[in-house]
Every structure is written in structure tokens, then in C-alpha cells.
Simulated assay, not measured.
Amino acid sequence: MLTLHTKIPSADIIAAQLVLPYELREKCRLRATLDTGEDVAVFTVRGTVLRDGDLLTGEDKRVIKVVAALEPTYKITCADAHTLLRCAFHLGNRHTQAQVGDGYLRIRADAVLKEMLAGLGATVAEEKAAFEPESGAYGGGHGHHHEGPLAPIPLRQKIHRPGDPA
């Protein structure tokens, strides 16, 4: 099984894509399947978030591109900036991860939050979209680069996927 553990800034050749929803791009240990059908193990330092477009490699030097999967989200727009800021405040007050776009917010689909946002005067549209929330005030920027492996690489560790037989 291919093991991916090192983030690189660029590559001439991309061997495959690893398409993952945000919830899996936050995990530090992960077994997944590339778009080619090959199984891979991903090892990162706790707290690392894989972003759309990140490039990963391992011992065999093949380069794999991380792609943000389309997932159920709500795109939040408002008639004015003040209302959008109020929505952002209330989402933050509930510790809700949010993607900030030009004139909109995007969150994971959640019926309770949808109702709250509509009550604040927002237009909430269901969308299948790549979810790339803000990393947070202490999470570092998108430009942070690691040299070498992202985490210690276990010699023999089985990575289990939800749904795998016990």
C-alpha cells in the first residue's frame, strides 16, 4: 500500500488524485482510495489539514494531488454586509466552521443552522461544493510548508476505514 507522508510545494507529474471531503482532510491517520483505485495510507501531524491542491508523496516518490470533494453545504448570502456579518458572528459563537468567500459564507449542511440563518435575514442555498473553511486564528495560513515527513511513519500499522470488516 502506498504511504503518503510528505507535503511538497510543486511537481511536474501528478500520478493520481486523492479526493476527500473536509472531514477526512482533517484526520491525521487515514486509509483512502485514489482516483486510480489504489489504496493509500496518509500520515500527518495532529492538527494538519490537507487543502485542495496540496501535493503529497512517499517513499516511491509518486506525487498525489489532494482534491476537495463536493459535499452538502449551505451558501449563505445577505442583502447587505451588516446582515452577513451578523450571520458570521452567530456561526462563530456556535464554533461552526465556515468558509469565507467574496460576499458569502459557506458551512456544512445543518438544518438547525439553516433555520437560524434564515431568521437573521440570510438567503441559505443548498449546494454540493468543495468545503474549505478558515483555519482559525491560531491555525496558521495556507502557505505554511513542512520540510520532510508530516508525521512519524509507522513501520507496520493497519489503517481501518469505516465499513471495513472487523
Rank of each mutant, 00 (worst) to 15 (best):
M1E: 08
M1W: 09
M1P: 09
T3V: 15
T3P: 07
L4G: 14
L4S: 09
L4M: 04
I8G: 09
S10C: 06
A11I: 06
I14E: 05
L18D: 02
L18M: 04
L20T: 07
P21V: 10
Y22Q: 07
E23A: 13
R25N: 01
E26C: 15
C28M: 10
L30N: 11
A32H: 09
L34W: 08
T36I: 02
G37K: 00
E38T: 11
E38F: 09
E38G: 05
E38C: 06
D39F: 09
A41N: 15
F43A: 03
V45R: 14
R46G: 10
G47S: 12
G58N: 02
E59K: 12
K65G: 04
K65Q: 12
A68M: 06
A69E: 00
L70Y: 00
E71A: 12
P72W: 03
Y74S: 04
K75N: 09
K75I: 10
I76P: 02
C78Y: 03
A79M: 03
D80A: 02
D80M: 05
A81V: 03
A81H: 06
H82I: 07
T83E: 03
T83F: 05
C87A: 13
N93D: 12
R94T: 01
R94C: 05
R94M: 10
H95D: 06
H95Y: 14
T96K: 00
A98E: 03
G101R: 00
R106F: 08
A109I: 11
V112I: 15
K114Y: 09
K114D: 14
A118M: 14
G119L: 08
L120I: 12
G121H: 07
T123P: 11
V124P: 14
V124Q: 07
E126P: 12
E127F: 10
F131P: 03
F131G: 08
E132R: 01
G136C: 08
A137Q: 08
G141P: 11
G141T: 15
H142K: 13
G143K: 05
E147D: 15
G148E: 08
P149N: 10
L150I: 00
A151D: 11
A151Y: 01
P152N: 14
L155W: 04
R156H: 09
H160M: 07
H160E: 00
R161K: 07
R161I: 02
G163S: 07
G163C: 12
D164I: 12
P165W: 03
